[in-house]
């Protein structure tokens, strides 16, 4: 769907990568769900709870935010005000897209840079998430996520233009042929 459709085999690798990415997202979400549900079950049935459950589920949410955001970048699904570009003729629209994606790449790159700086600061005087697991390990997702987002914005500024109707995913458009109700 994105980038690098230069050769068939390259695009196959990209597809595989995207599938792995989707699988990871689903797995993390499932872990979050199971953690939350078992915490409720432990409380209701056994009057107890896992001490590490709360900090770990918060960390999972942070990771979902970055990796979900990274996948949203891949699909061009970020929320944006696109009223103006919609009014532009195709060529100008294409240029507006490239410039805006380049800008986003610069900004997310900056965020990645300062995330590294935060991790350095944290390693000088570590605090702990739970037990002996330092917080900076959980923070690693920030430079990782923002860095790859920057890369994806760069690629998308060069390779493909905006979707025809940005808010609407192809999945949703497929819902068209629902049967009508009897009345």
């Amino acid at each position: 769907m994105t980038a690098a459709s230069a050769t068939p085999s390259a695009s196959r690798w990209v597809r595989l990568l995207h599938r792995a990415e989707d699988g990871l997202l689903a797995l993390m979400l499932l872990a979050l769900l199971l953690l939350a549900v078992s915490q409720i079950a432990l409380r209701v049935f056994f009057d107890t709870g896992l001490i590490w459950s709360e900090p770990v589920s918060r960390l999972l949410v942070l990771w979902l935010a970055l990796l979900g955001g990274l996948a949203a970048t891949r699909e061009g699904k970020h929320i944006a005000i696109d009223a103006l570009p919609r009014l532009l003729p195709p060529l100008w629209r294409r240029i507006a897209w490239s410039v805006s994606q380049l800008g986003a790449a610069a900004i997310t790159g900056t965020l990645a840079w300062y995330s590294i700086s935060m991790i350095q600061l944290e390693r000088e005087m570590p605090t702990y998430l739970v037990g002996t697991l330092p917080n900076w390990v959980g923070m690693l997702v920030l430079p990782f996520g923002f860095g790859l987002m920057a890369l994806r914005f760069l690629i998308s500024s060069a390779t493909h233009g905006p979707a025809a109707t940005p808010e609407l995913s192809p999945e949703l458009a497929d819902l068209d042929d629902n049967p009508s109700v009897k009345s």
Binding site: E21, D22, G23, L25, A26, M28, L29, L30, V61, L64, A65, L66, L67, G68, G69, L70, A71, A72, E75, K77, H78, I79, S169, E171
Partner: peptide, 21 residues
């Protein structure tokens, strides 16, 4: 379809949480 739906949902969640952050 479950994996697709879950990752699709997390793309929206990612987009929202990035804004929140």
């Amino acid at each position: 379809k479950l994996i697709d739906t879950m990752s699709e949902a997390m793309r929206l969640v990612g987009a929202i949480l990035l804004i929140l952050g």
